[in-house]
């Protein structure tokens, strides 16, 4: 599945990429959105910005985007207020939203674009404890189908409003932009195979627990948990894996740890987990 890719700039993304963008200042975020869509413009892609605020404000976020008016007039760039889509009157439906995403991706190709490039600001969902689990389900659902697709996706989260939950939304993505020196990991799902990549320590163990719970919801039956690209995991993080394995086994769902990195091997042995040496 590959290593965790940390983004410094919102550039260099290509079809099949699915990333997250955490931000804590508006001006910096608007520059990132502009750069992201400028790259998509140059590729000739269908651009969709689902942002926080009315459409007029979203257009203003992109005031630095060259040919903005032409892109809007031609329909190549479309703006949607996240409040219009998630108005809080109905629960967030992961399956329906994933279906809508892929419908838009297919429509973009049908309309003659090489692919869809979408940026969605999911802060409101991340900040809502009731909606966050559904958002994670949605992200898993999208992420497992992104590889090889013509779509490019970036999920943005305003750390100031999302609180500590922002890291959980980020960790469903193998590509992440971070604003602090904290450790980062990603949980990727492909069928019944889970890849845990990056770094797990005391700062993000609770996030790992939440993501494993989301994995449990999103899957059925036994799991393979691959750790080939896990660069660091401490005792506390490994204990979280051990508790997950124990609880899954108690429910008749064995978890097999495979492809242990050297870092993972050291701590997993402490808990009797992993492949025989």
């Amino acid at each position: 599945m590959g290593r965790l890719k940390v983004l410094e700039r919102a550039a260099g993304l290509a079809p099949g990429d699915h990333g997250s963008w955490a931000y804590d200042d508006d001006a910096g975020f608007h520059r990132a959105v502009t750069e992201y869509f400028a790259e998509g413009r140059d590729r000739g892609e269908q651009l969709v910005y689902v942002g926080n605020g009315p459409e007029g404000a979203l257009a203003d976020h992109l005031r630095g985007l060259g040919q903005r008016e032409r892109l809007l007039d031609s329909g190549q760039l479309r703006l949607h207020s996240v409040q219009d889509i998630f108005d809080g009157t109905a629960p967030f439906d992961p399956a329906a939203r994933a279906e809508e995403f892929w419908r838009q991706a297919d429509q973009a190709v049908a309309d003659g674009y090489p692919g869809l490039r979408l940026l969605g600001d999911v802060t409101a969902l991340v900040a809502d404890p009731a909606a966050l689990p559904q958002l994670l389900d949605y992200e898993f659902g999208v992420d497992r189908l992104m590889a090889g697709s013509t779509a490019t996706g970036l999920c943005a989260v305003d750390q100031r409003r999302a609180g500590n939950s922002w890291a959980r939304a980020a960790a469903v993505h193998g590509i992440q932009h971070l604003t602090s020196g904290r450790s980062a990991f990603a949980v990727r799902l492909s069928g019944e195979t889970v890849d845990l990549v990056g770094e797990v320590d005391i700062a993000n163990t609770a996030d790992l627990v939440a993501l494993l719970e989301a994995v449990r919801r999103a899957t059925r039956g036994p799991l393979r948990l691959r750790l080939a690209d896990l660069d660091f995991i401490d005792v506390g993080g490994t204990r979280a894996l051990a508790l997950f394995e124990q609880d899954m086994a108690a429910h008749g769902r064995p978890v097999r740890f495979e492809q242990l990195s050297r870092a993972a091997l050291r701590t997993l042995r402490l808990f009797g987990l992993g492949e025989a040496p």
Partner: peptide, 27 residues
């Protein structure tokens, strides 16, 4: 700061560690 503890430590250890044992020292 628990959030940045390992990053702080890693940056500090990088200049002082035993190179062949860096990952073991850090852990």
């Amino acid at each position: 700061d628990v959030v940045t503890a390992r990053a702080d430590l890693r940056g500090w250890l990088d200049t002082r560690t035993v190179p062949s044992r860096a990952s073991e020292v850090l852990l």
